Measured scan of single mutants.
Amino acid sequence: MLEGKVKWFNSEKGFGFIEVEGQDDVFVHFSAIQGEGFKTLEEGQAVSAEIVEGNRGPQAANVTKEA
């Protein structure tokens, strides 16, 4: 698991990027966000996630919002 913060997230398109210190930004799709209801993230929000290899490079999986 790694910790980072949301760089930006487009709720209409359902994707965005997470900033991780010392690494390239990581793509995040709404389907990777854990929880019930409408899955979205806010800019600057702290999150933790796993990194997996997607079709277009590294992407976030099992994204959870930090308190």
Rank of each mutant, 00 (worst) to 15 (best):
M1S: 10
M1E: 07
M1C: 12
M1F: 13
L2I: 15
L2W: 11
L2K: 12
L2A: 09
L2R: 11
L2V: 15
L2G: 04
L2E: 04
E3H: 15
E3R: 15
E3P: 13
G4A: 06
G4N: 01
G4H: 02
G4P: 01
G4L: 06
K5C: 13
K5Q: 08
K5P: 02
K5F: 11
K5N: 06
V6L: 01
V6N: 01
V6E: 00
V6P: 00
V6D: 00
K7L: 06
K7N: 03
K7W: 05
K7D: 01
K7G: 02
W8L: 00
W8P: 01
W8A: 00
W8D: 00
W8H: 00
W8M: 01
W8K: 01
F9K: 00
F9C: 04
F9G: 00
F9R: 00
F9H: 00
F9P: 00
F9T: 00
F9N: 00
F9Q: 00
N10T: 05
N10A: 07
N10M: 06
N10W: 09
N10H: 09
N10I: 06
N10Y: 05
S11H: 13
S11A: 13
S11C: 14
S11G: 09
S11P: 11
S11R: 15
S11Q: 13
E12V: 14
E12F: 13
E12Y: 13
E12L: 14
E12R: 14
E12C: 15
E12I: 14
E12T: 13
K13Y: 08
K13F: 08
K13S: 07
K13T: 06
K13W: 10
K13R: 11
K13V: 07
K13M: 09
G14Y: 03
G14N: 00
G14M: 03
G14C: 07
G14R: 03
G14Q: 02
G14H: 02
F15E: 01
F15R: 00
F15S: 01
F15Q: 01
F15N: 02
F15K: 00
G16P: 00
G16E: 01
G16F: 05
G16L: 04
G16A: 03
G16N: 01
G16I: 04
F17K: 04
F17S: 01
F17E: 00
F17V: 08
F17D: 00
F17H: 01
F17C: 08
F17T: 03
I18M: 04
I18A: 02
I18H: 00
I18W: 02
I18T: 00
I18R: 01
E19P: 02
E19I: 12
E19Y: 11
E19D: 06
E19R: 13
E19G: 09
E19T: 13
V20A: 06
V20P: 01
V20S: 06
V20E: 02
V20C: 07
V20F: 15
V20N: 03
V20G: 02
E21K: 12
E21C: 14
E21Y: 12
E21I: 11
E21H: 11
E21L: 11
E21R: 11
E21D: 11
G22A: 05
G22S: 05
G22P: 02
G22K: 04
G22E: 05
G22M: 06
G22V: 03
Q23M: 14
Q23I: 11
Q23S: 11
Q23L: 13
Q23K: 11
Q23H: 14
D24H: 11
D24R: 14
D24L: 12
D24T: 10
D24Y: 11
D24P: 15
D24M: 12
D25V: 08
D25N: 08
D25W: 10
D25M: 08
D25Q: 06
D25F: 08
V26K: 03
V26T: 03
V26L: 13
V26Y: 04
V26I: 12
V26N: 00
V26C: 07
F27N: 01
F27D: 01
F27L: 03
F27S: 01
F27A: 00
F27E: 01
F27H: 02
F27G: 00
V28A: 02
V28P: 00
V28F: 12
V28N: 02
V28E: 03
H29L: 06
H29P: 02
H29M: 05
H29T: 03
H29R: 04
H29D: 03
F30T: 03
F30E: 02
F30P: 01
F30A: 05
F30I: 06
F30S: 04
F30V: 06
S31H: 07
S31W: 09
S31G: 07
S31D: 04
S31V: 04
S31T: 12
S31I: 04
A32C: 09
A32R: 03
A32T: 06
I33A: 02
I33D: 05
I33Q: 03
I33H: 02
I33T: 04
I33L: 07
I33C: 08
I33F: 04
I33E: 04
Q34A: 11
Q34H: 09
Q34V: 14
Q34Y: 09
Q34M: 12
Q34C: 14
Q34F: 09
Q34P: 06
Q34D: 08
G35F: 08
G35C: 12
G35S: 09
G35W: 09
G35H: 07
G35M: 13
E36V: 12
E36Y: 10
E36P: 11
E36R: 10
E36S: 13
G37C: 10
G37P: 05
G37H: 05
G37Y: 05
G37R: 03
G37M: 05
G37T: 06
G37S: 07
G37D: 05
F38Q: 05
F38E: 06
F38H: 07
F38V: 06
K39F: 06
K39H: 05
K39L: 10
K39V: 08
K39Q: 09
K39R: 11
K39C: 09
T40N: 08
T40S: 10
T40P: 02
T40W: 12
T40I: 09
T40K: 07
L41I: 04
L41A: 01
L41Q: 02
L41P: 02
L41C: 06
E42D: 09
E42C: 15
E42H: 14
E42I: 14
E42T: 13
E42F: 14
E42A: 12
E43N: 12
E43V: 15
E43M: 14
E43G: 12
G44Y: 04
G44W: 05
G44L: 03
G44S: 05
Q45E: 11
Q45R: 07
Q45V: 09
Q45H: 08
Q45C: 09
Q45S: 08
A46Y: 14
A46W: 15
A46T: 12
A46G: 09
V47L: 03
V47I: 09
V47K: 02
V47T: 01
V47P: 02
V47C: 05
V47R: 01
V47S: 02
S48Y: 14
S48R: 15
S48W: 15
S48K: 15
S48A: 10
S48L: 14
S48M: 14
S48C: 14
A49R: 02
A49N: 02
A49Q: 03
A49M: 15
A49V: 15
A49D: 02
A49C: 15
A49E: 01
A49T: 11
A49S: 06
E50V: 14
E50Q: 14
I51A: 03
I51R: 08
I51L: 10
I51K: 07
V52I: 11
V52W: 09
V52D: 03
V52K: 09
E53P: 12
E53Y: 15
E53S: 12
E53T: 13
G54R: 08
G54T: 14
G54P: 02
G54E: 05
G54D: 05
N55S: 14
N55C: 15
N55A: 14
N55P: 15
N55Q: 13
R56D: 06
R56N: 09
R56P: 07
R56E: 06
R56A: 08
R56T: 07
G57R: 08
G57K: 05
G57F: 05
G57I: 04
P58N: 08
P58A: 08
P58C: 09
P58G: 05
P58W: 12
P58R: 15
P58Y: 10
P58Q: 08
P58D: 04
P58M: 10
P58I: 11
P58K: 12
Q59V: 10
Q59K: 08
Q59E: 11
A60L: 04
A60I: 03
A60Q: 01
A60E: 02
A60P: 01
A60M: 04
A60F: 02
A61P: 02
A61I: 14
A61T: 10
A61G: 09
A61L: 11
A61F: 11
A61E: 08
A61V: 13
N62R: 13
N62W: 12
N62F: 13
N62Q: 09
N62M: 11
N62L: 11
N62I: 10
N62P: 02
N62K: 13
V63I: 07
V63N: 02
V63A: 02
V63E: 03
V63S: 02
V63D: 01
V63Y: 00
V63G: 02
V63L: 08
V63Q: 01
V63T: 03
T64A: 09
T64D: 06
T64G: 06
T64R: 15
T64V: 14
K65Y: 10
K65V: 14
K65H: 08
K65G: 08
E66K: 15
E66N: 14
E66A: 14
E66D: 11
E66R: 15
A67K: 12
A67I: 12
A67L: 12
A67W: 12
A67D: 11
A67E: 11
A67Q: 12
